[in-house]
Amino acid sequence: MKNFSLTLHLWTGLVFGTILVVLGLTGSALSWMHELDVLFNPGLLHVAAPRGMRTGDPFRSDPALIESVGDALVRDSRYGKPNTLELPLRAGDVFVASYRVPPGRANAPWVQSVTRQVMIDPSTLRVTGERNWGEFGMSRPLLMPTLFHIHRYMVAGETGKVIIAVTGVALVLMVLTGLMLWWPRMIGSAIWNAVTIRHGGSWPRFSFQLHRAGGFFAAPVLLVSALSGIYFNMPEWVTAAVNVISPVTPNPKLMNQSIGPGEGASVAGAVIAAQAKFPDGRISRVSFPARSGQPFEIRVRQPAELRQGPGATRISIDSGDANVLRVIDPERARGGDKFLSWLFPLHTGEAFGLGGRIFMCLFGLLPLAFFVTGLVIWVKLRRKKLFGM
C-alpha cells in the first residue's frame, strides 16, 4: 500500500507541481490585492476623500448617491446602465461600474471573459478612468487583474476553471497520500523523528525531513485551500459531496413576482429595501437586472461576517415593486450552507483578520518549497533505482 501511495504522491506532484507553485505565488500577492492595486494605480482607484472625511475612514454610500452614480452613467453615451456597481469601502475609494464585454472567437471555452470596469469619483461623479478586467497584461492597470485570473483560471476561461479544479483534486490526493507516507510507528521517538527537521550535513536528508515534517503541519491548510479552490471553480463537485452530509439550500435564479413589465423600482428604492433588512450592514454592491422581469441583487456585509470586503449577504429585490424576494444570510445559515460560506474567508485568511492574511501570504510560498524538496527526493530515488546506490 505504501508503494502505491508513494508512486501516486510522486507522480501527482510532478504533473501538478508547477501549477501549484504558480497558484501559491500568485495567491501570496493576491493576499494584498486591493492594497497593491491602489498602490500601482492611484490615479485610477484613489480620489480625494469627501469633505469632512479623512482618507481611509469607513464610507457608507447612501441610496441617493448610488442612484446618482447610476443615472450619470446612463446619461453618458460612452457607458449606459452597468451590470454591477461596486461601492467604495473607505473614503478615497471609487465606485466601480462593470460592463460585460461580448465574448470573442465564438466564445471558445479557453478564452478568458473580459469585463469593462469604469471608475467614478463619489464626490464629483467624474470618471477617473477604466480598464478591461480579464485582459492579460503586465501594465499597472492590468497587473493585479492578470495575477487574479492566473490564480483563478490560468487565464484560460472555462477550460482554466476545470484545470484548477482538477489540480485541487490532485492536491487532496497528494495531502492524503503524503499523510499515509508520513505516518510513523506510534512510539515517542518515531513520532518525534517524523515532526522534526535536522540538517545533519546531508541536503537530500534535510530535504526529505523538511518535506515530511512541513507536509504534516501544512496538511490542514492545504486541504482547506484545495477544497475551496475546487468549490470556487466547480461548485457542483463540492456541493454534491457536502449535500450528502448536510443539506445545502438550492439558490435558483429568480424572476420578479410583481405584476407588469418593466422596472418600476428605482435603484435607490432597492437599496433602501435591502438596508431595511440589515440596518447595521454596509451595502457593498448592486447588481442590476440584466433583462426585463429580473430582480436587483444587493450585496451587504454584516458587522460580524467572516468575509471581509463586500461580505456574503445577498438580498434579491423585485425590480418592479422593490419587495424582497430572497435573502441569503451567512450569519443565520446552518449545516452545509454555513460550511460553504466559510470557504472563501478561510481560503484568503481574512477570517482571522490581518494576521490570517499575513499567514496565507507566507503560506503561498510553501508549494515552491514542497516542489523543490520533492524533486530532490525524486532524483535521489531515481538514482537508487538506476544505479543501485
Rank of each mutant, 00 (worst) to 15 (best):
P289K: 10
D321R: 07
I317Y: 08
Q294D: 08
F339P: 09
D337I: 03
H347N: 05
G374S: 14
R299N: 07
G309Y: 15
R314S: 04
P310S: 15
I283A: 13
T313Y: 03
C361H: 01
R301L: 01
R383S: 11
A322Y: 07
R314P: 00
G281H: 12
I317R: 06
R285Y: 06
D329V: 13
H347A: 05
V379E: 02
R314W: 00
E297D: 07
R382E: 07
A333P: 07
I317L: 08
G320Y: 07
L346R: 05
D337V: 02
R326G: 03
A369M: 15
S287M: 09
G355M: 14
D329L: 09
R285F: 05
A351V: 14
R332L: 09
D321L: 04
A290F: 00
H347Q: 06
A312Y: 10
R326W: 03
I298V: 12
V372T: 03
I315Y: 07
G281V: 04
F288P: 03
L354I: 15
K338V: 01
E331F: 02
S319Y: 03
H347W: 01
L354K: 09
S287E: 06
S341W: 14
G336E: 10
L366Y: 02
G356S: 11
Q302A: 04
S287F: 05
V327L: 04
L365G: 10
P303S: 11
G374W: 03
L368C: 10
L365E: 00
E305S: 05
Q302D: 03
L365V: 13
H347C: 04
G374Q: 11
L362R: 00
G355D: 09
I298G: 04
Q308G: 15
G356K: 06
A369V: 15
P303Y: 12
G349T: 07
W342N: 04
R332N: 15
G336N: 13
M360P: 02
L325T: 14
A290W: 00
S319K: 01
W378T: 00
S316D: 08
R285I: 02
S284M: 09
I358P: 03
E297H: 05
R357S: 09
S319P: 01
D329I: 12
V376S: 02
G336Y: 13
I298L: 08
V286G: 09
Q294K: 11
G353A: 10
V372L: 15
P303G: 10
D318C: 07
V379G: 01
A312V: 02
G335W: 13
V286P: 05
S341D: 15
G311C: 10
I358F: 14
R301D: 00
R291P: 00
A322P: 02
P310T: 14
I358N: 01
R307C: 02
L343K: 08
T313E: 01
A351P: 05
I283K: 07
G311F: 12
P295S: 11
G320K: 02
S284Q: 10
F352T: 04
L340G: 09
A312K: 15
R301Q: 04
G353F: 04
F352G: 08
P303A: 12
A333C: 08
